[in-house]
Write a protein that binds this DNA or RNA. Sequence first.
RNA 1: GGCGCCAUAGCCAAGUGGUAAGGCGACGGUCUGCAAAACCGUUAUUCCCCGGUUCAAAUCCGGGUGGCGCCUCCA
Length: 473
Amino acid sequence: MSLKVFDTLRDDRIPFTTVREGKVGMYVCGLTVQGPPHVGHMRAAMVGDLVHRSLRWLGYDVTFLNNFTDVDDKIIVKAAEDGVDYTTVAERNIESYFRFVDLLGMKRATLYPRVTQHIPEIQTLIATLIQKGVAYAAGGDVYFRVEKFQGYGKLSKRKTDELRSGSRIEPGEQKESPLDFALWKAAREGEPYWDSPWGRGRPGWHIECSAMAMKYLGECLDLHGGGIDLIFPHHENEIAQSEAATGRTFSNFWVHNGLVLLEGTKMSKSTKHFYLAEEISNIAEPATIRYYLLSTHYRSPIDFSQERLDEAGTAFSRIRQTAEGLNGVLGAPTTGVEEPIAPESLAQPEIRTALVDFRASIEDDFNSAGALGHLFSLSRTLNRMMAEPSSGEKEARIKEGYRVFHHLVSLLGLDVKAPEVEIPEIIRDLARQRGEARAAKEWGRADEIRKELTERGWVVEDRGGETVIRPLK
RNA sequence: GGCGCCAUAGCCAAGUGGUAAGGCGACGGUCUGCAAAACCGUUAUUCCCCGGUUCAAAUCCGGGUGGCGCCUCCA
């Protein structure tokens, strides 16, 4: 088996190849930090994380860039509203983004480049485009001449003449054609600016990604990702700028994630129909959110609701239950099992199959949902083993499964530790009283106390010799 | 109007030519003082509908129906 990746441009799953043997340069469009991250940003970041982790797991040396567009019209507007500097707005939201990246167990990208730190590179790229005749300065702005780029529309499958009918020139713009897009925007009074050969201004949206990606990853990227809603115009324009400048293919693979839905429809900032990452983390545990995000294939839409998240929590607790059981037998692992495990080295067919099938799913366009299915199968296998009467042989078999289980769990970044909960003294006390009642075989009283505990939101489980107290939900 | 995507059990969701993963829920059983968790079993003769291609189709093609997205800022 080998990795296949769905490429938006070629509209098919293609055997994955890289520009440089064994190395991957990938770029995922991060956010324009005009506001705090919402669930959609989290999904895109999770997909980037899944791809990042999977490629590493498969043995690639990955350089992963995830940018912040930290200066643009909306950030400037927001800053004016709040009466603060635009950098304050950007900084605030970037911090918030990182908080959720960590909370959801994502591996940090290699680099998080920011637009404001790459103005010279952006200006150089613009100058190259002007020099090649595919861009022109007009009234302090610089525009990309879309008609000059023959491949325009190849990613989004659009024809330029069809696009023309729907577009128009905004007042104040001096475009030659309505299709042309800004590479550089002249600063108006009071707006942040950088000096440039075309006057004071700031980069347009799109150009920053091309400049930053090429600076760190070279002219030809292996993989470029982002939300499906970025295909047009953002990624189409990135291709136009980059390829017009270099004459080379900008990215070999275009990976786009499906959108997050709310009650079946798209989130939208303008209608206030969206979930902030903050809000979601209030209604579900981060580990559950991660599990949920992974349980649907990345290209499909995913619907967020309390009901779905609750269900995901129940499903995920099954995985955790196994982890807990394994800890009881072998102790909690001190670290994730990162080193590769060769299937041939596994003695038990069921465990070997789980690993092989899991890998096949990941190699099939990062199919995390399929992979989770195989993890559940492994979970059942292990639960069954643990239920067997003990013997030395049993331990050895469980040990093999334990390694594979933690190996797969750590690839997916799932936090299988039961969440730490503080058990109030009064609850402990009630449980203690119930224990005494049970010891005295006063079942009526014991059940009475359990009922009391349930009403207070706690569950007691008598497992073998010991009693476990856990929160109801 | 133009361009796309999707439709799989009560619910969620994998599966792009070889005879329907997995999870939730439900029901029956084992275990338990009773539960919970776990385990065992049952829960889609069939993949929106109608045609076609093929030895073989949930999977490919054509036509419907229904839902959604993009074409303007958007992850």
